[in-house]
Amino acid sequence: MAARQMSVSSENAEQEMDYLRFGYSYEDIQNMAQNILKRTKHKPLLGIICGSGLGGLADLVDQPDIIPYSTIPDFPVSTVPGHVGKLVFGLLKGKPVVLMRGRFHYYEGYPMWKVAMPVRVMKAMGITTLIVTNAAGGINSTFNRGDIMIIKDHIDLPGLTGECVLIGKNDTRFGPRFPATVDIYDKELRDVAKQVATELGYGHILREGTYVMIGGPTFETVAEGKLLKMFGADAVGMSTVPEAVVAKHTGIKTFGISLITDLLAMEYDQATVTTHEDVLAIGQQRADDLQKLISAFVERIPL
């Protein structure tokens, strides 16, 4: 009897360790998605992840159903100012959407798989396209505060140094063991966004470039900024890449956009202190422009 109890205890411990290392199972994700869908009348086809200060997009949603993260069993909770922590279901320009008002970050202490877990839930709920937004620091010397950068490519710095979001067991029902990532950010979606931005008169603040993710929560030193520039990055932030990689892994088309909220100092005598409050302030200043751009973009793209 004692041996039997020890065996069960050992099995439970092993399952717990698997959970800590690899996260939710395919069945867990399916069950979570179905439980969430029972609480809304909408069947979303488009997912939108709102970055720091960009949660106002949710105010444009018609017929909203709002579900706080804290009421969803086993769902993480956002702890960062500017990230409200709610799922918003509804219609945006007549199209069924789900928005994340607040995302999760590696620097909050969440493992990478948990940071990107909501994308798997979105896939299980039926979305086929993902829009991911963020606030970022400008590295490219031609950028200005308040510019909007379409993400053409990214550098997964945590992934390159051993913290890739796909590390661990792979369930092929989610996606392949070794997914290609050369085309994560869909070119057709990028082209539509450029056209829409030009039509709205935002061409003078529109940029396109490479986003690099760092772990955070510290902002970059001068030396780190120089290093990231040498890597070929145009903007830097602390999010987006895990969600985009998982979206690619699971077969979702992805469009990414960064609001340039500050500029990295590349010389010590030019160094300024960047604060999260500064980031939120620029987000507020550009809120209307971003909302108009994304709304018109959503209206234009096929789902």
Rank of each mutant, 00 (worst) to 15 (best):
A2I: 13
A3H: 11
A3Q: 10
R4C: 13
Q5W: 15
S7Q: 12
S10C: 06
E14V: 10
Q15W: 13
G23I: 05
S25L: 05
M32H: 02
Q34C: 07
L37R: 01
T40S: 01
P44K: 09
P44Y: 12
I48T: 07
G56Q: 14
L57R: 05
L57V: 07
Q63S: 15
I67L: 13
I72W: 03
V80C: 11
V80S: 09
H83A: 10
V84E: 15
G85F: 03
V88F: 11
K95I: 00
G102T: 10
G102Y: 08
H105K: 12
Y107W: 08
P111I: 03
M112R: 04
V121C: 02
M122P: 04
L130Y: 02
A136L: 04
N144E: 11
R145G: 01
H154D: 06
E163I: 11
K169I: 08
R173K: 14
F174H: 05
F174G: 03
A180S: 15
V182I: 12
D183P: 05
E188T: 11
L189V: 13
L189I: 14
L200A: 10
G201L: 08
G215P: 01
G216Q: 05
G232N: 11
G237W: 02
T240F: 12
A244S: 15
A247G: 00
T254H: 06
L264H: 01
H276M: 12
L293V: 06
L293T: 03
A296T: 08
E299T: 00
E299D: 10
P302G: 09
